[in-house]
Every structure is written in C-alpha cells, then in structure tokens.
Amino acid sequence: MTAVETSVHWTTVCPLGRLLPERGVAALVGDVQVAIFRLHDGSVRAVGNVDPFSGAAVISRGIVGDRGGVPTVASPVYKQVFGLLDGRCLDDADVSLPTYPVRIRYGHLDVGLPW
C-alpha cells in the first residue's frame, strides 16, 4: 500500500454517508471528474466519470449491478457496461475507464489522483 500512497495525491470529497448503496455520485478533483460508487458490500470504488462512448460526464449516474459477480455500472447514455474493479468495458475490450484509489478516514471519503 505504501507504494500507492506515495504516488497519489489524496483529496477528501465527502462524508461517507453521502453515498447511497449502489448509487453513484460525481466529484470534481482538480479538473478531473470522478464517479464514486458505494457497493452493496459497503466497499467504495472510483472510476472516471466521462463516458468514452458519448463523451458526456455521466458514468456516476449509471445503474450499479453485477455481471457474473463482478460489480458493474452501465453508462446511462448508450448502456455499455463497465467493471467497477478495473474500469474495463465488458462490451468492448478496447475501451476502459480510468480507476482511482479511495480510502475512508474519519468517516470521510478520500480519492487519490496520480501526482
């Protein structure tokens, strides 16, 4: 973990309570748009908010679910599904969303962006 901790810059975005289970929120970290999801098991995942297929910043508004047990989000525009663990598009192997590390401290959620 230390390796990760030194290479990213953490920003606190909101209290954990702002995240509804299986629903996303968008956060603006510097000029990067991040989509953050709280999964059914309580874990939190962060990926890029810009949908690569439409160019619109809407991934945080997609429906959360799973495909074969892998947690996913479906883009609300043209419905492509992305894995929330690695950001990969499950409908087009050439496309993926960036992923960002998250951590929870003092009841708040931090998102890590590369320096």
């Binding site: 975005v13 909101c14 956060a27 748009q33 160019g55 619109a56 910043a57």
Partner: peptide, 29 residues
C-alpha cells in the same frame, strides 16, 4: 458534484442556433 454542488459540469458548453442555445458536440467516438 458531491464536493462542489453548484459547479456546472465543465464539459457542457453551448452555442447559439436560430436564436437559442444548443449543445456543442462532445468528442466523437
């Protein structure tokens, strides 16, 4: 944005067409 509730999405931009605002197209696939 959960951490900037009133900041508009910077990707949303408009131009004018026949006297009304319409979206500037986003990056094409």
């Amino acid at each position: 944005f959960v951490n900037a509730p009133d900041t508009p999405d910077p990707l949303v931009r408009t131009r004018e067409e026949r006297g009304q605002p319409v979206p500037v197209a986003l990056g094409m696939p």
